[in-house]
C-alpha cells in the first residue's frame, strides 16, 4: 500500500495549491485567469512566481487571500484546507504586501493609526510597544510613527506596508511585486530588508515578480506562468545554469540576461 507522504508529517508544507482555477466575469466576458495551477511551498522556503502581465501570477495571490472570490480546486495552508470564506486565524498565518505602496496605504491615516488598527483588529493588547518594535524591525524608527503617507518616500511607504503585514506575526508572506514601483537603489534596500526579516523570523515567502533577476536573488525555487498556466517549476540554480526546459522560460531568461 502506498502511503501518502503528506499525512505522515502534516505541517511540512506551508502552502499547497492543487489544480487551482480562478476566473472573472461571466458569459462572453468570462476570463479564465488561472487554469489548473499546482505547486507546493515548504516551510521556510522562498518561492517565486514569474510571468508576463496578465499571466495570472497576482491572481493566485489574490485567490489565496480571498480577494478573488471565484475559484475552484484546493488550497491548503499549514495543513488547513481553505474555504471560500476565510477565518480570522487565516489572517494570522498569511499576510500580503501589495505592489503599489502609493495605493495601499490610507492617505488620511498616520503610520501609527495604520499599524495600531491592524494590531487592534488582531486582538493584541500591548499595541504601543508593538508599534515601536515593528517600526524598528523595518528600519524606520520612531520619528516616522506619526507621519502620514504623503510625508514618506516610496521606499519608506513600502516599509510601512511590510510592517503592517508583519503585525499579526504571520508565517507566510505573499509579496506582490514589492519593489516594482521603486527605484533600483531603494529596491536594493527593500530586498535586503526582506531577506533579513525572513532569516530572523523564519518566514515563508511567495513572491510574484516580472523581474527574473529579483526572483533569482530572493527565491530558492520558482514557477513560470504563461496564460494562466504554470508551464514549469524549477530551482533558481537550474535557472542560472540556463537549464530551463520549457521554451517560454528560455525566452524569458534570454530577455532578462
Amino acid at each position: 500500500m502506498v502511503r501518502c507522504p503528506k499525512r505522515e508529517c502534516p505541517i511540512v508544507n506551508m502552502l499547497e495549491i492543487d489544480n487551482l482555477n480562478v476566473w472573472f466575469g461571466k458569459h462572453r466576458d468570462r476570463v479564465d485567469a488561472v487554469k489548473g495551477a499546482s505547486f507546493i511551498i515548504g516551510q521556510g522556503e522562498s518561492f517565486g512566481l514569474v510571468g508576463e502581465s496578465g499571466s495570472g501570477k497576482s491572481t493566485i495571490l489574490r485567490a489565496i487571500t480571498g480577494l478573488a472570490p471565484l475559484w475552484s480546486g484546493r488550497m491548503i495552508v499549514e495543513g488547513q484546507p481553505l474555504d471560500h470564506q476565510r477565518r480570522k486565524t487565516f489572517f494570522k498565518t498569511v499576510q500580503m504586501v501589495f505592489q503599489d505602496p502609493y495605493a495601499s496605504l490610507h492617505p488620511r491615516h498616520s503610520v501609527d493609526q495604520v499599524l495600531g488598527e491592524t494590531l487592534h483588529l488582531h486582538g493584541f493588547s500591548d499595541i504601543d510597544a508593538r508599534v515601536v518594535k515593528l517600526l524598528d524591525d523595518v528600519g524606520l524608527g520612531q520619528k516616522f510613527r506619526f507621519r502620514y503617507p504623503h510625508q514618506l518616500s516610496g521606499g519608506q511607504r513600502q516599509r510601512v506596508a511590510i510592517a503592517r503585514a508583519l503585525a499579526p506575526e504571520p508565517h507566510l508572506l505573499l509579496l506582490d511585486e514589492p519593489t516594482s514601483a521603486l527605484d533600483v537603489s531603494v529596491q536594493a534596500e527593500i530586498l535586503n530588508l526582506l531577506a533579513d526579516l525572513r532569516a530572523s523570523r523564519g518566514l515563508t515567502y511567495l513572491m510574484v515578480s516580472h523581474d527574473l533577476s529579483v526572483v533569482g536573488h530572493m527565491c530558492d525555487r520558482l514557477a513560470v506562468m504563461k496564460d494562466g498556466e504554470i508551464v514549469e517549476v524549477l530551482t533558481v540554480d537550474a535557472l542560472r545554469a540556463t537549464k530551463a526546459s520549457h521554451p517560454y522560460s528560455q525566452h524569458l531568461l534570454e530577455a532578462s540576461l
Binding site: 533600483v184 537603489s185 536594493a188 533577476s213 533569482g216 536573488h217 535557472l239 542560472r240
Partner: peptide, 9 residues
C-alpha cells in the same frame, strides 16, 4: 545595486 542573475550575491 541591481541584482544580477549571472552574479548571485
Amino acid at each position: 545595486s541591481l541584482p544580477r542573475l549571472d552574479m548571485p550575491r
